[in-house]
C-alpha cells in the first residue's frame, strides 16, 4: 500500500491516525496531541479537512467527534520584532 500523508508539516501518515484511533483517542483534539498532526507551520489549514475526510471515510466519524481543534493566532507566522515595539513597555 502506498503510504498516505495526512499532515505534511509533521509527517503524519493516515496509518498513524488509524493507530491512534485504535488506542482509544476519539476526538480531533486528542488525535492532534497524540500524532502531532496540525502542529506544524500550516497550523492545520491543510491537514484538518484531510483528517475529517479520513475519519468520515473510515466511518470513525460517529465515534470520533469531528469538531476541529482550537484555531489560534497568528493566522500566518509573524516575526517577533514586528509584534514588539507597539503599545507596551515590557520593562514596566
Amino acid at each position: 500500500m502506498i503510504p498516505c500523508f495526512l499532515c505534511r508539516c509533521e509527517d503524519v501518515l493516515a496509518a498513524e491516525v488509524d493507530h491512534a484511533i485504535d488506542l482509544g483517542w476519539t476526538t480531533v483534539e486528542e488525535i492532534k496531541r497524540y500524532t502531532g498532526l496540525g502542529t506544524g507551520p500550516c497550523q492545520g489549514k491543510e491537514c484538518l479537512p484531510l483528517l475529517a475526510a479520513h475519519l468520515a471515510a473510515r466511518d470513525a466519524a460517529a465515534a470520533c467527534a469531528l469538531a476541529p481543534f482550537t484555531q489560534r493566532p497568528p493566522a500566518e507566522p509573524a516575526p517577533l520584532a514586528a509584534l514588539a515595539g507597539t503599545s507596551e513597555d515590557p520593562t514596566r
Binding site: P41, P73, P74, A78, L80, A81, L83, A84, G85
Partner: peptide, 24 residues
Amino acid sequence: LERIGAALVRVFPRLGPVSVLRQW
C-alpha cells in the same frame, strides 16, 4: 504577543526576525 515580543528580543536580539507559529 506585543509584550513577549519586546521582552524576548531584548534578551535575544537575534530572535527579532523569527516568526511566532502559535500562541495558546
